Structure formats: structure tokens, C-alpha cells
Simulated scan of single mutants.
Amino acid sequence: MSNVVKIRKGNRILNVEESRLSSFLNQGYDQIDDNGTIVKRATGGRNVTVAELNEVIEAKELLEEQLANSDSAELLKENKALKTKVTKLERELEELKKPTDSNASGK
């Protein structure tokens, strides 16, 4: 078997050819690596309860609210200041790299 990938659904782990991967993803299997970490999530074949869906929706709304209330303006201001400092330091570094007139005439 060449190009074999691991897939998992529940506690079932299978090794299948890569050419059959999309079919198994549609059946609810996740592609995993050797450590069991999900590489690609299933694209079908799963049911989600209303309670699970509501939990995800509430978490999403909470994160969106936190993002809207965050001090993103302050972070943007700080980011701009840091970029200015980096630019200034890069210019200073370029100036230090340039040969001085005394070094050029001594050669």
C-alpha cells in the first residue's frame, strides 16, 4: 500500500489509501496523524445534538462580544509605535553597516 493515511471515527482507527480518504471523510471519519491529532475533520456523516449546537453558538457569541469590547484600538496604536521603532532601528543598523570615510581612505 502506498500513500496510506490514518482515519478515526469514535474509537475505530483505520489505515486507508489516500485515494479513498474523501469517501471516508464524508462518512464521518477524521484524518489523523501518528500522534492521533486531527489533520482533516470529517465533512459529513455526523449528527450534532441541539444542546451541543447551542453551546457552540453561545461560545461564538461570547467571543464576538469580547472581541468587540477589546481594546483593539489600543493594540493598533501600540503596533504602529513598535513598527516605527523597528524602522528607526533598521535605518540605524544600515548606517552602522556603511563604511566610513576614514575606512575607505585607509585601504
Rank of each mutant, 00 (worst) to 15 (best):
I38T: 12
R46C: 07
L76P: 00
N69C: 02
T37M: 15
L53K: 12
A59R: 08
E78W: 04
L89N: 04
L89G: 04
L63G: 04
D71R: 11
A81D: 05
K60Y: 14
K40T: 00
G36E: 15
L63F: 11
K80C: 02
P99V: 03
R20N: 06
E74P: 01
K77L: 13
G45L: 08
E18K: 08
A51D: 13
L93Q: 07
E94R: 04
D71L: 09
T37A: 13
D101L: 05
T84G: 14
E64L: 01
K77C: 05
N47P: 02
E52C: 12
E90Q: 10
E58R: 14
E58A: 13
S22L: 00
V86D: 07
N26P: 00
K83E: 10
V48W: 01
R46Q: 10
V86P: 02
K98T: 13
A59Q: 05
S19N: 11
L67W: 05
A68N: 15
G44P: 12
Q31V: 02
V50M: 15
E74D: 08
D33H: 13
E61P: 00
D34E: 09
L67E: 10
A68Y: 15
R20C: 04
S19V: 10
S72L: 11
V86F: 11
S19A: 15
E58I: 11
N79T: 13
E64P: 02
S23W: 09
N79I: 11
E74S: 07
L76K: 02
E18S: 14
L53E: 12
D101S: 06
G44Q: 08
K77A: 05
D34Q: 09
N54G: 14
A42M: 04
A42G: 04
E61S: 06
L75S: 00
A42S: 07
N79S: 10
L76H: 01
K40D: 00
E94A: 07
D33V: 09
S70V: 08
A81T: 05
K97P: 00
L89M: 14
V56K: 10
L89K: 07
L21A: 02
Y29L: 07
L67F: 09
E90C: 06
L75I: 06
E74I: 04
N47D: 02
S102G: 05
E78P: 00
L25Q: 08
E18A: 15
